[in-house]
């Protein structure tokens, strides 16, 4: 198991200055050209602003949760972080260099930033055995000598809590929880320093989810991974991540240390999400009214003002930007719920 513990201090990661964050997003904007609904045969397109003025900094060794409901832009943000989509505005940096350039330069980016996809089963080739799936990145990135591959696969299987004989099986014969473990083992095979996971524990039974959460937390600590974790579950975010970024309609509306933000949310949307999470024997709270507006038809002013229980007259006029709120937090709200000191 020693390689898994020591890989964080491998020489590879030391050539970058320790001060540059792993990821830094500065005013990132992503506009997709889409045909508006009910436009008939017309080919005219309009801009859909999936990300708008996103600022985010992910430091080495931290874990950050990206939280938001459908349509909030989590997945687009993820694609920008992985360099799969170029932002249409602003800058997206990886260790100080534009992500797209870093990605195009060679295999280092792909080796260093590993991904666990939401649809773990769909991300694994159904015609490859588990062993072949995990051996593929080992071979591709020349992680170990050829004769060591088998042993390394066995180590990785063990590390994610799968029996060694799982290597001979196919994804189709594995349960949902086992498939996620294989996806995690495959992601870790390239000895990355960053793990990006999209809803890696959603849709599972609670006991399987608990098993995966303790596994992920152990891996993050033992291997000193930087973890970017997309989830819709605030409980999962608070268990796994030091920091949280809450998104609504393409914008980060609040970020900060997870426990501080969840104990005293400053943005009314964070507060509403917090209240909507089921809690034992608490009376069901008054839910937010309405649904998330279409990103093609954003409300004027603050984009949350149409559903906000604390909206003031000026909220429909001015669009609040994500601004500093105390030492470690930032919030995009004209009338935050708490004081910055809190």
């Amino acid at each position: 198991m020693s390689f898994l513990m020591s890989s964080a201090s491998a020489p590879r990661t030391e050539k970058v200055p320790a001060t540059a964050p792993v990821f830094e997003l500065i005013e990132v904007e992503k506009v997709f050209q889409v045909r508006p609904p009910n436009s008939g045969l017309s080919r005219k397109t309009v801009g859909l602003r999936a990300l708008d003025g996103v600022r985010l900094r992910v430091d080495t060794g931290t874990s950050i949760a990206l939280v938001g409901e459908s349509g909030s832009g989590k997945s687009t943000l993820l694609r920008v972080l992985l360099g799969l989509d170029a932002p249409t505005g602003g800058r997206a940096l990886y260790h100080g260099a534009p992500i797209r350039e870093a990605r195009a330069k060679g295999r280092d980016f792909a080796r260093d930033v590993a991904m666990v996809y939401q649809d773990a089963r769909g991300s694994l080739d159904p015609r490859m055995t588990v062993e072949a799936l995990i051996a593929e990145p080992l071979r591709h990135f020349n992680i170990v000598q050829k004769d060591q591959i088998k042993a390394r696969v066995a180590e990785l299987l063990d590390r994610v809590g799968l029996p060694t004989d799982a290597g001979r099986r196919y994804a189709a014969g594995l349960s949902g929880g086992q498939v996620r473990r294989v996806a995690i083992a495959r992601a870790l095979a390239s000895e990355p320093s960053v793990l990006v996971a999209d809803e890696a524990v959603s849709g599972l039974d609670v006991s399987t989810q608990a098993q995966l959460l303790t596994l992920l937390r152990g891996l993050q600590r033992d291997m000193n991974l930087t973890l970017v974790f997309i989830t819709h579950d605030l409980g999962v975010a608070s268990y796994l991540c030091d920091e949280i970024a809450i998104m609504y309609l393409g914008r980060i509306v609040e970020t900060g240390p997870t426990d501080v933000v969840l104990n005293a949310p400053a943005h009314p949307y964070s507060a509403a999400l917090r209240a909507a999470a089921p809690r034992f024997f608490e009376p069901m709270p008054e839910p937010l009214s309405g649904e998330i507006p279409s990103p093609l038809d954003l409300p004027p002013g603050c984009r949350f003002s149409t559903r906000c229980p604390a909206a003031q007259p000026d909220c429909g006029e001015r669009d609040p930007q994500l601004g500093r709120f105390g030492a470690h937090r930032a919030v995009a709200c004209l009338h935050p719920l708490t004081n910055p000191q809190a």
Binding site: S175, G177, V206, S207, T208, Q209, A210, Q211, L213, T214, L215, D233, L234, G235, V236, S238, Y239, D259, L262, N263, R274, A277, R279, F280
Partner: peptide
Amino acid sequence: RQLKSCVVEIGRADLVAPEGT
């Protein structure tokens, strides 16, 4: 008990995962 102990409530720091399937 096991089912209850797997619920990840906000602010929860300890989580003991059950064994097996």
